[in-house]
Design a binder for these strands. Structure first.
Lengths: 98, 98
DNA sequence: TATATACTTGACAAATTTTGTCAAGTCAAA
DNA sequence: TTTGACTTGACAAAATTTGTCAAGTATATA
């Protein structure tokens, strides 16, 4: 099953035996922010994704997909008719409509 | 085929033979903002949807679905792997993960 | 028990984005 | 060539997001 962005990068950090403060230094953000991101209490800003991919040596696009799907979840999690909304969104994008 | 939120409310306004300034007065926004919304140059803020539904006497949920799908389109329109992202987002929501 | 280390949390400030206002513009009809 | 309907762009105001900092928890270890 797919993981959240936070879980994903936490596992990557642990797998690489790195400390929060080591990674946050490389990301140039405060360790508290990284903590929140890993715990899904904040959404990482998009430019951080490239840095994560580089630090953990993983595919940027895979991280991006996880991050984007999390953003969609955030936008829709309290709504109804999720499947219909996603279907319509997909169609609109496919047919170049907006 | 599904229409954009802007097209939708423009058609509704025209079908009701109302002027931009008449509707914008009811919405309590400047006519220029409504113009931009109808032309998809701005996204309406969510609270406006209720007002639109009331003014045009249409189902709130239908408008909401159109508006939300537009927001998703906006978020994904310049990305790749759209179908995968939408699929994953749907799964995450369904299984209560985020 | 005390000290250190890793991480978490919340309040606030700074930065960014969104939204509203206004003035000037286009365009078509009268 | 004036009027009415709408559009556009620049800017200000408001709201949201992001970063900073200080204090907190939890665990391990001397």
């Amino acid at each position: 099953m797919e993981n959240s962005f936070g879980e994903t990068i936490r596992k990557l950090r642990e797998g690489n035996n790195l400390l929060l403060r080591e990674v946050s230094a490389k990301l140039e953000i405060d360790a508290s922010v990284l903590s929140k991101i890993e715990n899904n209490n904040r959404i990482a800003k998009k430019e951080l994704i490239k840095k994560f991919a580089k630090i953990y040596n993983v595919d940027y696009n895979k991280l991006l997909i996880i991050w984007l799907s999390d953003k969609i979840v955030n936008e829709l999690k309290d709504e109804n008719n999720i499947d219909e909304i996603l279907k319509i969104a997909g169609q609109k994008i496919k047919y170049g409509k907006e």
